[in-house]
């Protein structure tokens, strides 16, 4: 249960950062926090008490008490993709800074919706 609290705590902190902060770098950090919380939640859904990793690294492991491999497989790729999308967000921030000379979203007038 504490894993769920931690995961959603991270997601809610990330949402708070996204809503309150105006600095672009801080907003990207918020997105990254949401990403981490989501990954933690997916992993903890597959958790089994006293379970072992789903790897037959030595003989005599009982497959019935292994944790669910499916969320782990999903998160494995999600982490790498999140790194790439984070890099893309940072690249956009670099370009915005070059164009406007500031990272404050409040000061970039023509970007407001």
């Amino acid at each position: 249960m504490v894993y769920y609290i931690g995961a959603f705590g991270l997601i809610i902190i990330g949402l708070y950062v996204l809503m309150v902060k105006r600095n672009l770098i801080k907003m990207i950090i918020g997105i990254s926090l949401i990403n981490t919380g989501l990954n933690l939640f997916l992993i903890s859904v597959g958790f089994i008490k006293l379970g072992t990793a789903p790897i037959f690294s030595k003989p005599g492991l009982n497959p019935k008490i292994m944790v669910d491999p499916l969320p782990q497989a999903m998160v494995l790729t999600a982490i790498v993709i999140s790194v790439a999308t984070l890099a893309m967000a940072l690249a956009l921030a670099i370009r915005l800074y070059e164009h406007h000379g500031t990272l404050d979203m409040g000061k970039i007038k023509d970007q407001k919706w």
């Binding site: 769920y4 497959p63 292994m66 669910d68 499916l70």
Partner: peptide, 19 residues
Amino acid sequence: IPFGVSKTKVGNYYNLNGV
């Protein structure tokens, strides 16, 4: 959502028959 128990059938299938 129950915590710490086996939930999906497909995960069990992978663990039992994966190798």
